[in-house]
Simulated assay, not measured.
Amino acid sequence: MSASEPSKNHGAIQTGGLGGLVAGFSYPLRAIAFLQQTPRLAWYVLIPILINVIVGGTFYTWALSAGFNGIDGLMAGLPDWARFLELLLRGLLAIILLIATGLLLLQFGGILGSPLYGRLSEELEILRTGHKAEDVPGIGSIVRDIWRAILFELKKLVLVIGLGLPLFFVGWFPGIGTAIATVGSIGLGVTIVCLDFFDPALERRRLRFRDKLGWVRRSFPASATFGLVSLGLVSIPFVNLLAIPLCITAGTLFFCDRILPKLEPGDRN
């Protein structure tokens, strides 16, 4: 089946249970295959990666240089036998900065590449379904788009704090408390990841935040396994440079296959 004819099998993949679990895991692989079949979409992936590499590389080089200078000053005057401490500190600093840079890019890289990610998702939907999402009133308003994006991030923050804080305190109780906190934290992370990677397609319909959450829930268990594998990919520093556009692609394909066929025309804000 070609990339431009995927809509023919929408109904065939609306499975739940074990089939849904396996399907959720498979979407990053489907995304890789889809992008290989449609090389014209490569620019929407490569340009954000290039921007992130330049920004991340510049920050890492500057921070590493400043850190090494600080270590040199700290170690000045030590005897030769203690020089191994300098090498140890340099190595630790390099690793810590590598992880920190990756985490910073995960937080801000999506913002830098968001215009291209939105365009990537739109093009993917056209190829996957054979038609473009219908126009929604107000979709061309830059001010409204920015305001909705800010509200989306704020509501995610409220969700994280509202659920994260109780889980944090529950985790102080050994045994069952630790288990509940661990499972709950993973579940919260999976939910946030699903919201992020389904959002370009859901936002084109101007859905409310609660409706977006609802579709994550209604797509269970496939959304759980999709979110779990995506969370793992974006949690690896620098691997997430490739994982973010890949997961945007996977999330849009998931939306087209498992959410769009059930979405009512009036389900928008």
Rank of each mutant, 00 (worst) to 15 (best):
M1P: 01
S2V: 11
S7A: 15
K8T: 07
G11F: 15
T15L: 14
G19Q: 13
G24H: 05
P28Q: 09
P28H: 11
L29K: 10
A31G: 05
Q37M: 09
R40T: 10
L46C: 05
P48Y: 03
V55K: 04
T58H: 06
Y60G: 00
Y60H: 08
A63R: 14
L64Q: 02
S65F: 15
S65Q: 12
D72Y: 12
A76R: 15
D80P: 03
A82R: 08
A82W: 10
F84T: 01
L88Y: 07
L88C: 02
L89C: 10
L89K: 08
A94D: 08
I95A: 10
L97E: 06
L98F: 15
I99E: 02
L104Y: 13
L104K: 02
L104D: 01
L104S: 06
L106I: 07
Q107E: 06
Q107A: 11
G109T: 07
G110Q: 12
G113W: 15
G113E: 07
P115G: 11
Y117Q: 05
G118D: 09
S121A: 15
E125F: 14
I126P: 00
G130S: 00
H131D: 00
A133H: 12
A133W: 11
V136A: 06
G138F: 14
I139S: 13
I142K: 10
I142S: 06
I146M: 11
W147V: 08
I150N: 01
I150Q: 03
L151N: 05
I161C: 08
I161L: 14
L163W: 15
P166L: 12
P166V: 12
F168T: 11
F169P: 01
F173G: 04
G175H: 10
I176D: 07
G177T: 13
T178C: 05
A179N: 02
T182C: 09
V183D: 04
S185Q: 11
I186R: 01
G187A: 13
L188H: 00
V193E: 03
L195I: 07
F198M: 13
F198D: 00
P200Y: 14
R204F: 12
R218Y: 12
P221F: 09
G232F: 09
I236Y: 06
I236L: 08
F238L: 04
V239D: 02
P245H: 01
L246C: 00
C247Y: 01
G251D: 05
F255E: 02
C256S: 15
D257S: 10
R258G: 02
K262G: 05
L263Y: 07
G266Y: 14
R268S: 12
